[in-house]
Computed example of a mutant assay.
Amino acid sequence: MTPSPPPPPVIRPLWVALGFVLTGLGFVGLILPGLPGTVWFVLAAGAFARGNPKWEAWLLSRPVVGGLVRDFREGRGMPLRAKWLACTCIALAVAWSLTRIPVLAGQVAWVLVALAGILYITLWIPTRRP
Rank of each mutant, 00 (worst) to 15 (best):
V10C: 01
L119E: 09
L123K: 14
R128W: 03
G19I: 08
R73L: 09
L22C: 02
T122H: 10
K54I: 09
L32V: 01
P7E: 00
F72H: 14
G67L: 10
L14P: 09
I125E: 00
K54F: 10
W40M: 15
P53L: 13
A95H: 12
P53Y: 12
W55C: 03
F48T: 03
I121Q: 01
P130Y: 00
A116N: 06
C87V: 15
V65Q: 05
V42Y: 04
S61F: 00
R73A: 10
L98F: 15
F72A: 13
E56D: 07
R76W: 07
T99R: 15
P63D: 12
P13E: 09
A86F: 02
R76F: 11
R128Q: 08
I11K: 09
V113H: 04
G67R: 15
L80I: 06
C87W: 00
G75E: 02
D71G: 11
K54H: 12
A49V: 05
A91T: 06
Y120I: 00
P8Y: 02
K83C: 01
T2C: 10
S97N: 15
A45F: 05
P79I: 02
V103G: 08
G75P: 02
L92Q: 03
S61H: 06
P33A: 11
V94L: 12
G66K: 13
L123W: 13
A17L: 13
L59D: 03
P7A: 05
A105E: 13
G77A: 01
A86E: 01
V16N: 03
P126K: 06
L43W: 04
L22I: 00
L30F: 06
W84A: 13
G75V: 01
V103H: 14
A47C: 14
R128A: 07
A17E: 12
T99I: 14
E56L: 01
A82Q: 06
W124P: 03
S97V: 15
L85E: 11
V65T: 11
R81T: 10
P126T: 01
T23H: 01
F20G: 04
L85T: 13
T38W: 01
V42N: 08
R76L: 15
L59T: 02
T99F: 14
L85W: 12
L85G: 11
L30E: 09
G34C: 03
V42K: 04
V21S: 06
W96T: 14
V42F: 04
F72W: 15
R76G: 07
S4A: 13
L92G: 01
P7K: 00
